[in-house]
Design a protein around this nucleic acid. Sequence first.
DNA 1: TGCAATGTTCAATATTTTTTGAACAAATTG
DNA 2: CAATTTGTTCAAAAAATATTGAACATTGCA
Lengths: 122, 122
Amino acid sequence: MSRTPLHPTREQIELPTVLDCLSDPTRLAIVFTLAGNDQAARELRCGDFNAFSGKSNLAYHFAKLREAGLIETRIVGTTRYQRLRRQDLDARFPGLLDAVIKSAARDAERLQFPRCELVAAD
Amino acid sequence: MSRTPLHPTREQIELPTVLDCLSDPTRLAIVFTLAGNDQAARELRCGDFNAFSGKSNLAYHFAKLREAGLIETRIVGTTRYQRLRRQDLDARFPGLLDAVIKSAARDAERLQFPRCELVAAD
DNA sequence: TGCAATGTTCAATATTTTTTGAACAAATTG
DNA sequence: CAATTTGTTCAAAAAATATTGAACATTGCA
């Protein structure tokens, strides 16, 4: 599935772009899930998010998150593992991600995030 | 100019809506300016933002900010004063606004906010 | 090798947002 | 009262985003 995609460097991450990513409910749910505020892992595969939306729509949102610098994609065989670029984000925008994640957690009820359904691992 | 417009209550303020407001460069500039990170006042009139965009476009953005719960509009005669609803935002999303404002301040160079041109007061 | 699984990419839609300008409204001032 | 100032509202146009499904690519497996 092609080569490992392009990620912006830490310095290239832009505030408005990051906020835009987080303002979309689907992407916020993805980021929240990757942040592991549930009991979830730190690294998840695309397929784990199938409850969130259709495959191709997810690919679109993952691309946006990746290009914005929010997540890093690691390719292993035929699956892609995503993880939050927490260190980079914290360095670039101190306190921002924490505030967003905590607020999202407090509002979990009203935000109604889909439940991440772990795909059986190999 | 009609009656004082509707503002959501503190509890009605939604995280994705707030993030969406902040992700737009014009609105982020407005919020940043109202936050007074320059030497600016806490309450500003629409006209003070004329450098940011056209009048009707500003009215659009102010409405978005107001309906999202980011600003409060106070009508005095023919002018409208806007102020950040900092207390409500801090209560609802602790640390969020601070993180955004601070990050914006650090990135001031690259964000290139327009300079708020104070309109002569009465 | 051929089939299944995982995701991407592309093109077409659909939807939402932003921007503009003209017309309007309310208050203030001469 | 007429003119000016401040800013809104409306409708139209422009632009950006999101969503879908079909086709494709890569890897893993029987």
